[in-house]
């Protein structure tokens, strides 16, 4: 048990915004062996234009948050290819699952980095289709980060209330 406890003893606390940025870079590095570059970070509204496929995950607790990871389909296809060696040619169940799992990992990792024991992670939801929009009933003003990566561009839109 002592050995297991050391895993969390080393955790330090960072603010939710940095937690999401760090968690995103880490997930790409570890899951895809892929480095990412932040292109632009700007204040945004939830009613924005997303890419072809988007995963949404909620964090609830003293601080409430929503994280959206949105991918052009070619980026999502290449992510699947890197993980399991299958290159999809359409957005199917496997692609949705992969994008959802990405949001799960980023959300979970961000939660741990904030070191807030009240925070709980929801299950991811995945939306796809051309020009889709997502209504997020949140009072938090979101931040949008555009990324480029070895497997293509993607976007992370997230906001926290109480932060």
């Amino acid at each position: 048990m002592t050995e297991l406890m050391e895993v969390s003893e080393t955790a330090s606390t960072i603010n939710p915004v940095d937690a999401v940025l760090d968690a995103t870079a880490e997930a790409f590095e570890i899951m895809l062996s892929c480095s990412v570059t932040k292109l632009e970070l700007q204040a945004q509204t939830w009613d924005t234009s997303f890419n072809d496929i988007t995963a949404v995950i909620a964090l609830t607790g003293t601080i409430n948050g929503t994280i959206c990871l949105s991918f052009p389909k070619q980026t999502a296809f290449e992510a699947v290819n890197r993980m399991v060696g299958i290159l999809p040619d359409e957005i199917d169940a496997l692609v949705c699952d992969a994008v959802g799992e990405f949001a799960n990992v980023v959300g979970g990792s961000a939660k741990d980095k904030t070191n807030d024991p009240t925070m709980k992670l929801g299950l991811p939801n995945v939306i796809h289709g051309e020009d889709h929009h997502i209504e997020i009933p949140s009072s938090a003003s979101p931040v949008c980060v555009e990324y480029d990566s070895d497997i293509g561009p993607f976007m992370v839109l997230f906001g926290f209330s109480g932060a």
């Binding site: 406890m5 895993v7 955790a11 992670l121």
Partner: peptide
């Protein structure tokens, strides 16, 4: 093997008989 890497979660799992813990993302 989970994204739940907080101390309280690990304690809960250990108390219920988990042998080991691997936090996602894993290599």
């Amino acid at each position: 093997v989970t994204t739940e890497g907080s101390r309280s979660k690990i304690v809960e799992a250990v108390q219920n008989g988990i042998n080991d813990y691997l936090v996602k993302p894993f290599t």
